[in-house]
Write a protein that binds this DNA or RNA. Structure first.
Lengths: 162, 162
DNA sequence: GGCAGGTTACTCGGATAGCGATTGTCCGAGTTGATCTGG
DNA sequence: CCAGATCAACTCGGACAATCGCTATCCGAGTAACCTGCC
């Protein structure tokens, strides 16, 4: 089981946008430049974020993407769901109702116990992800990034937004 | 993100084998018959369980598969790992070290905060799965399966093992 | 000098190929149990 | 009647296609700013 590679890009991109001054937008081209990623594919990722209402887009000169909400109100889970979809990891195909021992019209009061166990674990995962906000990610970045890098980033931001 | 379909088959198959009398074995052919699954593909799943030491195999007439350990000692996580692999769902490619703002030789004391958050959630998922044993699954099945089905299953077992 | 129209450059968005992993299948290798034969 | 060898059937195990989803890319649609010429 592997998460989409785009998830990593999306979270980093959103984290970058979290530092964007009010009212400004960051084009996909610039984000791709900042992380040295293929522009065309990143654009697709950003589009998915746009569809999921995590960012809004604006076309034309001075356009680009920006977050729709405060970084406090966006969780990792939101981003993961936007990129990777919201379907259950474990798909129950009701195997128990098949084969010679089970009749098709049997009444089962509960979902399959195996599915319930798998879904419970999945829920724990989702729950952890929903507890981490984009603001938390941003703060971690500020605290843990080496100083020279941080200064370079600020410089890059100034140049880009001018 | 989707879990291998084989995981569901594997757990059901193991649950079935948990009810197998001491010393006997269940061939893949019979398991496929019980659940009405394609025999060839199920054989592949069983093979993966065999490689991971969850079941042992025995060839020839009277051969088949059986659990290596007591159902108490086998967790859902063991089976998931056997079929789906043990790699991390979230792969960190160290994006933060790329692009114009980061120098390649920069020293980062900690793994990327994003990766840490994702891995923590993943750990919660693994932890939940490791808490559920095959015995638990078996017991749930006994309690929740409609009586007529349970009797049919017992009947099938008798015929098959004779 | 101010305003309107056209032009240009910039950005997003959807349609379109390429590739790798999961899914699905087959046949050969190995083993066991039964059978047959000879003592 | 028993023991040993042979045989045949059964089961696993690895090698081999097909399909699907993720990865990657391009070009057209839309928009805002700017420039130019006229009033």
């Amino acid at each position: 089981m592997r998460l989409n590679e785009g998830v990593e890009w999306a979270v980093h991109s959103c984290s970058l946008m979290a530092s964007l001054p009010e009212g400004m937008a960051l084009p996909a081209r610039k984000i791709a430049e900042y992380f040295d990623l293929p522009e065309a594919y990143l654009a697709k990722i950003m589009q998915q974020l746009s569809v999921s209402q995590i960012v809004t887009s604006r076309r034309g000169p001075g356009g680009g993407y920006r977050l729709t909400k405060s970084p406090d109100e966006i969780s990792l889970l939101d981003i993961v769901v936007a990129i990777d979809g919201n379907e259950q990891c474990f798909q129950c195909t009701e195997i128990r109702r098949r084969g010679p021992t089970a009749s098709t019209d049997a009444i089962y009061n509960l979902p399959c116990g195996i599915a319930r166990s798998m879904w419970k674990a999945e829920q724990a995962w989702r729950n952890e992800l929903s507890k981490v906000s984009l603001r938390d990610i941003q703060m971690m970045g500020f605290r843990e990034t080496p100083k020279p890098q941080l200064e370079k980033a600020v410089e890059w931001f100034k140049e880009t937004l001018s």
